[in-house]
Nucleic acid binder design. Structure first.
Lengths: 240, 240
DNA sequence: ATGCTGTATTTTGCATACAAGTTTGAAAAG
DNA sequence: CTTTTCAAACTTGTATGCAAAATACAGCAT
């Protein structure tokens, strides 16, 4: 379903197919924000984005409202939009919530998933491991994301899926901040080993515990990496 | 259609203050959907809503996008918007997620809240109890909501607050479905008693457990009330 | 020199106009 | 009588124009 064609496009003013402008505008902005192409706190002037994306202000504004509801953009009355800041405090808060949701998903998935679906996750797991030993980071990331998504979908709870998808975008933003150190990478793989074992054993509580810990470790890595080397504007916690 | 309540505001075409049209449109639609004034599954034709709310299509469409991102409205390409259906399966899923989030909030709040804030919740609690013995349901509901919100805010996690607010709207929708039986009401009050005790004791795990159970009991009441007496169109689980 | 004020420019918010897609219904063919 | 086709009406999607708010800046007063 979510398999999108590679499509690196950042379309300038190519005359798109006539429908689906709103959707593709949302996606384009979504990517730009997640990848950091648009930086946290950056002011988003409508006219400028319109030219960049090749759409008029109406669909652009609708896209901004959608993204604002997802927490990627911040709107202020009569003062326009800016990319939502991403402070370390925000990231901490975010990981607490997502960790909790994944733990819930784990418990539900262990009850609801079919043996076949679990086996498919096993396949993904070993493919991911392959990318790990080959040092192919982007592919590793993609598989990692797919595994987490599969577990969430395995919970068979549409509300959970919807909330998770919205938050996953922000998690992705956080992942683009630091360079993932090899140490953390290796540790993450081991954590995934344990997670798969728990899933196969259908031990929901254990899997939940593991996933929550997995998330907290990822958070710690991000905090460590950025607390030391981040430029001041990036993400210092906003006491003001 | 359904009888609308008093209807003091709901401005027809009064020339509003020039700003804030978008926000108030979102709020108005929000209320209409939550209260059931707009029924689940109902098709939302833009022109009709424009006349009813006294705005043009542009801000209305922006509002619909916002509500869609919050899960109150469902959009389909070139086929417009409809009020998101609210099946019993949806409600079950929703309560699982919100219960889990409130449990998280409980753990965090027990650590983060000041004594003063906890005391304020105590005040709200006893005011709510007063409305209970006086049989004042709407006031009870309002206080109940305030207490839950105060605990979420006490967790001091802006992400959690944002997610919870979006989901709370859907929970409200569910509450408007059945007539709350007096039995459930009484039980809910007792559960709140225990919750307050755990909060004062700052026992986060216990409070989390209690709040999750509180939610599940509420869900069971709704399911029971509707499984038996709901009209077929309302909320039968949507296999389709 | 500094602070304030009024005006010009920019930018957002809303409304309307136009284009493209979808639905409906009636007429014609089987 | 049923089914198919096609066009008219309606609905949504997008672009543009206009008004109000905010910002920037120059000129003035202190």
């Amino acid at each position: 379903m979510s398999a999108r064609p590679a499509e690196t496009d950042q379309p300038a003013k190519e005359p798109r197919r006539k429908g689906r402008l709103h959707t593709s505008t949302v996606d384009a902005l979504h990517r730009m924000i997640v990848t950091g192409d648009l930086e946290p706190g950056q002011k988003l002037r409508e006219q400028e984005l319109c030219e960049r994306l090749g759409v008029s202000r109406t669909p652009l504004r609708e896209a901004l409202r959608t993204l604002a509801a997802q927490g990627l953009v911040q709107l202020t009355q009569n003062r326009g939009a800016e990319v939502a800041p991403l402070t370390l405090a925000d990231i901490t808060a975010l990981f607490d919530v997502v960790g909790s949701l994944e733990a819930l998903a784990a418990r539900l998935a262990c009850k609801a998933m079919t043996d076949e679906a679990i086996a498919e996750i096993g396949v993904l797991h070993y493919r991911m491991m392959l990318h790990h030993v080959r040092d192919e980071l982007p592919d590793y990331f993609a598989l990692n994301q797919q595994i987490h998504r599969a577990i969430i979908e395995g919970a068979q709870n549409p509300v959970l899926l919807g909330v998770w998808e919205a938050l996953a975008a922000r998690v992705e933003r956080a992942k683009y901040l630091p360079n993932l150190q090899p140490n953390r990478w290796k540790a993450a793989m081991h954590e995934h080993d344990a997670m798969l074992a728990a899933l196969v054993a259908r031990d929901g509580n254990e899997l939940g515990r593991l996933m929550e810990a997995h998330f907290h470790n990822g958070l710690a890595a991000i905090l460590a990496a950025n607390g030391a080397e981040a430029p001041p504007e990036t993400a210092v916690d906003g006491s003001a």
